[in-house]
Structures are given as C-alpha cells and as structure tokens.
Design a protein around this nucleic acid. Structure first.
Ligand SMILES: [Mn+2]
Ligand SMILES: [Mn+2]
Ligand SMILES: [Zn+2]
Ligand SMILES: [Zn+2]
Lengths: 158, 158
DNA sequence: TTGTTAAATAATAACGATTATCATTAACAG
DNA sequence: CTGTTAATGATAATCGTTATTATTTAACAA
C-alpha cells in the first residue's frame, strides 16, 4: 500500500505535481477499493469519511489527473456515469470486464488475451495499438445457475 | 435501402410497434450515414433537414427503441455523448473500432476476431457471452505517416 | 361516418453528471 | 517575512438525457 502510494507520488513529482493531502486521501480510497468500479461520486463519499473537508470538484480534478498519469483508467459501462479503475500493478494493458446483463455484476480478467488480435490489427489494418477496451456482456456463473434452478422448479410444477 | 427499412418495419411490427413517419425518417438518416457514428443530436439535426417538425425527444425515444430491438448499438467513445451505430446487415456480433488518439478518426473492423477469446472466457470463467465491445486506441495509418514526415523534416533542419 | 381508445409525438421542464469560475488557502522560493 | 504560483472548496453554469404533459394520430368498433 505505502509502496504504491510512494510510486504514485514519484509519478506526480516527475510531472511537477504535488501529492497533496486531498490527493493522497483519494488515492488511498482507490487502493482500498481496488476490486470495485467507483464513480466520482462514490469516491467523493468515501474520501469524505476520512477527510470531510474535501470538495467534490477536487475529487474530479484528482481523478482527471490520475487518468492523465495512467494511474487509473476511466471507463464507461453504459449507465450514465464514468467509473475509475486503478491499473493493476505492473500491468502492461488495461484489463477486461465481464458485465452480467442479469444482475449487473462486473468481473475482471487480468490475462491479456488480445495479443494475437492486436498483431492482426497492426499488420492488417496498419493501426498502432496503444491501449484497448474490451467488455463482454452476458450471463455470469451465478445467474446461469439461478436460471437452471428456476427452470427445473418450473418443471416440477407441471 | 428499401429492403432494410422493410426488414426493420417487420421487426417493429413483431413487437407491435409502428413505423411512424418520424421513426422512418430517423432510420433513413441512420442508413444514409452508416459509416458515421452519430450522436442523438447529430441524428436530430439530420432528420430535421427532411422533417423539420420532429422533436428531439422523439429522436431519443426512437434511438432507444432501435437499441432495444438491436437494430442499432449504443456506443460510447469517452467523449461525453452516446453514439448510435447501425448493426451491419446479417452480422452476428457488434463490430470493433479503432480510435486514433491523434486525429480522433474512427475505423471499423467487421471481422469477428474474438471467437477464440470468447471460447476461453466461456470455458475458463464460466461466463456466457452474449455481446461484446472492443475498441482499440492508438495511431492510425495517416497519423503514423505524418509522424514519420515530421521527424524527417526535423532531421533536415539540423 | 363517428366516437373511443391507446400509442406516439412536440414542446419544454427537470434532472444529474461534469466542468467552469472565483475567492481563499497552502506551499514554497527568494 | 513576502511575493508567487498551485491547489482547493463552494457553487454556478453547462449540457446530454429523461420526464412530464397536452396534443395529435392511428386503429378500430359501433
Ligand atoms: Mn476493472
Ligand atoms: Mn461502428
Ligand atoms: Zn449475474
Ligand atoms: Zn489519426
């Protein structure tokens, strides 16, 4: 934890930004909720618990800054809000997501999986890939089981 | 063109929706600008040229309806607006996009490319894939050439 | 035709996420 | 200390989208 904050601090300093208390509080919230996909508002409310004096605008500004520095990735799952996702430590590329269209759960895939596809895109389309966004929409494991249970219950009724 | 409108008309009727003049005008605009990625506002302005009496809310409602029917896909490139993309005729899956981070151009890939990846996701994550969104961010062919030209010009100056 | 109903529409108000503005404060070099 | 610049907090403004409501249209039965 401290190690990662130290790293981010250096990234900020390298572009002559400071790690202010507000920025640090924001980063800590992101680190403590790494598995979630928080909106700016979500982050704001969590930061407020520790540093009640912080303003919403500062959270937005900090998230924007962290996005520029590629500490976080800004992502959009199609509900009306942007969400901020900490880059995995040492990850080359942004990770992928599995969004369940039944329950709304979001699972992560850290494996790259796209190496071959990117090669094809580079060679066949002459496009120099820098980053990617890949999201699958479908039915998660849990909802699949529920569907099976529901349909067998349906069978029994007959 | 007429053929595709006829098809969409049947899709609407199958869910007991009507192809009203406003809806038809909207669909025509989408068909005539199939290569673009229009926002709701863009569609509204183009429809207005032909049917000036149409309201913005109706365009939004129509686009929402067409999205439900999977005639169009709603997509978000990270600028603040949703864009609407007609499904390619007979396409199994939504197509992919190459977004240039230099000039903002958007290129399309109709080839699936994800068959293998989806198999892995299904088998390894137990996730039943229904749809996907894949966007690559990088440098398009044109901007790559410009970079080469610029750097060689730089060389000559020395 | 005429009246009855529900669906669809246009105009516009409301909403909500994000951004801009601006006065105040903190950090810091000289 | 003093001046300078970056950062912040409060809040107004913006802008894409959604909700509301009165009106129009289409379908259809009497
Ligand atoms: Mn994630
Ligand atoms: Mn497209
Ligand atoms: Zn689920
Ligand atoms: Zn380009």
């Amino acid at each position: 934890m401290e190690h990662r904050i130290e790293k981010i601090k250096k990234q900020l300093h390298s572009q002559s930004y400071k790690l202010t208390p507000q920025r640090e509080a924001t980063v800590r919230v992101l680190l403590e909720n790494e598995e979630d996909h928080l909106s700016a508002e979500d982050v704001y409310l969590l930061v407020k618990e520790k540093a009640p004096e912080i303003g919403l605008a500062t959270v937005y500004r900090t998230l924007e800054l962290l996005t520029e520095l590629k500490v976080v990735d800004k992502i959009n799952f199609g509900d009306g809000v942007s969400r901020y996702d900490l880059r995995k430590e040492g990850a080359e590329h942004f990770h992928h997501h599995l969004v369940c269209i039944e329950c709304g759960s979001v699972e992560e895939i850290e494996e790259d999986l796209l190496l071959d596809v990117e090669k094809i895109v580079e060679s066949q389309w002459g496009f120099e890939v820098k980053d990617h966004r890949l999201t699958f929409h479908g039915i998660c494991r849990v909802c699949q089981k529920q569907a099976v249970t529901a349909s067998s219950a349906e069978e029994n009724k007959k």
